[in-house]
Amino acid sequence: GCWSIEHVEQYLGTDELPKNDLITYLQKNADAAFLRHWKLTGTNKSIRKNRNCSQLIAAYKDFCEHGT
Rank of each mutant, 00 (worst) to 15 (best):
G67I: 15
F63C: 02
L56T: 01
L17F: 11
F34A: 02
W3T: 02
D62M: 07
G1A: 07
E9S: 11
T24C: 10
C53T: 10
G42Q: 07
L26K: 00
G42V: 06
G13V: 01
E9G: 06
A59D: 01
D21C: 12
T24H: 07
H37M: 11
N52F: 03
D31C: 14
S46N: 15
F63E: 01
R51G: 06
N20V: 15
K39D: 09
G67K: 13
V8T: 03
R36G: 10
G13S: 03
Y60M: 04
L26S: 02
L40F: 05
L12Q: 02
R36Y: 08
L17V: 03
F34H: 03
T24N: 07
L12R: 01
I23F: 03
A30F: 00
I57V: 09
A30S: 08
S4A: 12
K49P: 04
S4R: 07
T41L: 14
Q27M: 10
T14G: 06
N29G: 04
S54K: 14
H7Y: 13
Y25M: 07
K28Y: 06
E9F: 05
G1K: 15
H37W: 06
K39L: 07
Y25T: 03
Q27K: 15
C64H: 08
E16T: 13
K39Q: 10
D15I: 15
Q27H: 06
I23S: 01
H37G: 08
T68P: 15
F34Q: 04
E9Q: 12
S54M: 13
P18M: 04
K28P: 00
L17T: 01
H37R: 15
G67T: 12
G1N: 11
E6L: 04
E16I: 12
L17S: 02
G67M: 09
F63R: 01
H66Y: 13
A59N: 02
D21P: 03
L35M: 06
A33I: 13
E16G: 08
T24V: 12
G1F: 14
I47E: 10
T43S: 14
L17C: 04
F63V: 01
H66A: 14
N50V: 06
L35F: 02
D15P: 15
Q10W: 05
Q27S: 06
K39A: 09
I5K: 10
E65L: 12
L40C: 03
A32F: 10
C2L: 12
V8G: 01
R36M: 11
N52W: 02
R48W: 08
D15L: 12
N44G: 10
I57R: 10
T43F: 06
F63L: 06
N29A: 10
L40D: 00
C2W: 14
E16Y: 06
L12F: 02
D62Y: 07
E6Q: 06
L56C: 00
K39T: 05
N50A: 12
S46A: 10
Y60L: 03
W3R: 03
E6T: 10
N44A: 12
L26F: 11
T41D: 10
Y11D: 03
G13L: 01
K28W: 06
L35R: 06
H37Q: 13
K28C: 07
F63K: 01
L17W: 00
P18W: 03
K19N: 04
H7W: 08
E65A: 14
D21N: 13
F34D: 03
D31T: 14
N20P: 05
L40Y: 02
N50G: 10
E9R: 11
A59H: 00
Y60Q: 01
I57A: 09
K49M: 05
W3E: 03
W38G: 01
S54G: 11
N50P: 05
D62T: 07
Q55M: 09
L17N: 00
K61S: 07
N52I: 04
Q10I: 07
R36Q: 13
Q55A: 11
N29S: 09
K49E: 09
G1S: 13
G42R: 07
A32C: 10
K19W: 05
H7K: 09
Y60F: 08
D21Q: 15
H37S: 11
K45V: 08
Y25I: 03
S46Y: 11
L26T: 00
K49V: 06
Y60E: 00
Q55E: 08
H7S: 05
T68I: 08
Q10P: 00
K61C: 06
T14P: 00
S54L: 12
T41I: 12
W3D: 03
A32K: 13
R36W: 06
I23A: 02
S4V: 03
G1V: 11
L26G: 00
E9H: 05
P18Y: 07
E6Y: 04
T24Q: 15
G42A: 07
S54Y: 09
G1M: 14
N29W: 09
D21G: 08
C64Q: 06
A30R: 00
W38V: 02
C53V: 12
K49W: 03
N50Y: 07
H66L: 12
H37F: 14
P18G: 05
G67P: 08
E6R: 08
G67A: 11
K61H: 04
C53F: 04
L56R: 00
P18E: 04
I23Y: 02
N44Y: 11
A59S: 05
H7I: 06
R36E: 10
Q10H: 10
C64Y: 13
A59G: 02
D21A: 15
R48T: 09
T68V: 12
K28L: 08
L56G: 00
T43V: 07
T41Q: 15
L22Y: 00
R48F: 07
L56E: 00
S54R: 15
C64W: 10
Y60R: 01
W38Y: 08
T41W: 10
A32W: 10
K28S: 12
N52E: 08
V8R: 01
I47D: 07
A58Y: 06
I47L: 10
G13R: 01
K28T: 12
N44P: 08
Y11E: 04
Q27P: 00
Y11C: 12
I47K: 06
K28A: 10
K28F: 06
I47F: 03
L35C: 07
Y60S: 01
A30D: 00
H66T: 12
F63W: 12
Q27E: 04
A32M: 13
Q10V: 05
T41K: 10
L35D: 01
R36C: 06
H66C: 14
T14Q: 07
K49D: 10
L35T: 03
R36K: 12
D62R: 05
R51C: 13
P18F: 05
Q10R: 13
R51T: 12
N50D: 08
C2M: 15
E16H: 13
G42W: 04
R48E: 09
C53S: 09
A32N: 11
K39E: 09
F34V: 02
L35K: 10
N29K: 10
E6K: 12
Q10C: 10
T41V: 13
G13F: 01
A59I: 14
C64P: 02
T24A: 13
N44F: 11
T43A: 14
S54T: 13
Q55G: 06
N50R: 15
N52H: 03
D21W: 09
C64V: 13
A58C: 09
R36P: 00
Q27W: 03
H37I: 08
E65Q: 14
N29P: 00
Q27I: 12
S4Y: 04
N52L: 04
T41R: 10
T24R: 13
A33L: 09
T24F: 07
P18T: 11
T41A: 10
S54C: 11
I5G: 03
K28G: 10
S4K: 06
Q10E: 07
I23R: 01
A59V: 12
L17P: 01
K39R: 13
G1C: 14
E65K: 15
G42E: 07
L26P: 01
D15T: 14
C53W: 04
Y60K: 01
P18I: 03
E9D: 05
L26Q: 00
E6P: 05
K49T: 08
T14A: 05
L12S: 02
E16C: 11
Q27V: 13
D15G: 13
N20D: 09
F34C: 02
Y11L: 10
S46L: 08
V8E: 01
S46Q: 12
D31A: 07
T41N: 12
C53D: 08
G42L: 05
K39N: 04
R51H: 15
L22Q: 02
K19C: 05
Q10F: 05
Y11W: 10
N29H: 14
H66E: 11
C64K: 11
W3P: 04
Q55Y: 15
I57G: 04
N52M: 05
S4E: 10
L26I: 10
Y60G: 00
A30G: 13
L17H: 01
F34Y: 04
D62L: 03
E65N: 11
I23M: 03
N20H: 15
Q10L: 08
L56Y: 02
H66I: 11
Y25V: 04
N44V: 12
R48M: 08
R48A: 11
L12K: 00
C53G: 06
F34W: 15
A30N: 04
K45G: 07
L12C: 06
G42Y: 05
K45N: 04
G42P: 05
G42F: 04
V8S: 01
A30T: 06
K28I: 05
T14K: 13
Y11M: 11
L56K: 01
W38P: 00
R36S: 11
L12D: 02
I5M: 11
Y25P: 01
I57N: 04
E9V: 11
K61R: 13
Q55P: 03
K19M: 08
